[in-house]
């Protein structure tokens, strides 16, 4: 079965009723796309099919024959997508398991809506679960990637050496209340 994956033509031995998720993971060894629930409830398996976000666990191979599939590995091969940079600048993720799907979902949003409002972000991202609770940072990273935060989002310089504080959060040092 022929399709384009991350810009390359591939010919993979797969039955029409196999799902894209497991063909990507098991046959094409693209394990950045994650299995989470198997019923489109969590979004961990989100990929792009002809530029649109789709849940790979629900897509049969018959439906992607001849189509262009993009996974997290192919979003930008050098990992330099504005979202990926913003994800690092905001130190978004914790366990990270859902985040390939989060980034792919967000990338589809920015392609259609380069400067989304917060409400648009929340609506678009609501189908992607994150058990670590990184929702606030995901919103900020998308805003940052969209240019919405600009330099004002950084309290400290936004270098890799110093991670910026989240907008609502601060660390402070007080005098010891009690010696160690």
């Amino acid at each position: 079965m022929k399709l384009s994956v991350n810009g390359s033509q591939v010919d993979v031995a797969a039955a029409p009723d196999e799902t894209l998720l497991w063909v990507l993971r098991e046959k094409l060894k693209l394990t950045g796309t994650k299995f989470g629930c198997g019923m489109a409830q969590c979004g961990a398996c989100t990929v792009h099919i002809d530029g649109k976000a789709a849940r790979a666990c629900q897509v049969r191979m018959a439906a992607v024959e001849g189509k262009k599939v993009t996974t997290i590995e192919g979003l930008l091969p050098d990992g330099n997508h504005p979202l990926q940079r913003a994800w690092i600048e905001e130190q978004v993720l914790q366990c990270g398991y859902c985040q390939s799907g989060q980034i792919m979902q967000a990338a589809a949003l920015l392609r259609e809506t380069p400067r989304p409002t917060k409400a648009q972000i929340v609506q678009h991202m609501n189908g992607n679960l994150c058990r670590c609770g990184t929702h606030g940072r995901i919103v900020r990273a998308i805003q940052r990637a969209a240019g919405g935060l600009g330099s004002s989002g950084c309290v400290a310089p936004c270098s890799k050496a110093v991670s910026p504080w989240p907008r609502n959060s601060r660390a402070a040092t007080s005098s010891p209340a009690r010696p160690a």
Partner: peptide, 19 residues
């Protein structure tokens, strides 16, 4: 599980003490 549309704004302050 709680989704993004239901997640609260969360404000955290860390007070480092010599303990």
């Amino acid at each position: 599980l709680l989704r993004m549309s239901e997640a609260p704004e969360i404000n955290v302050r860390v007070v480092s003490t010599n303990n």
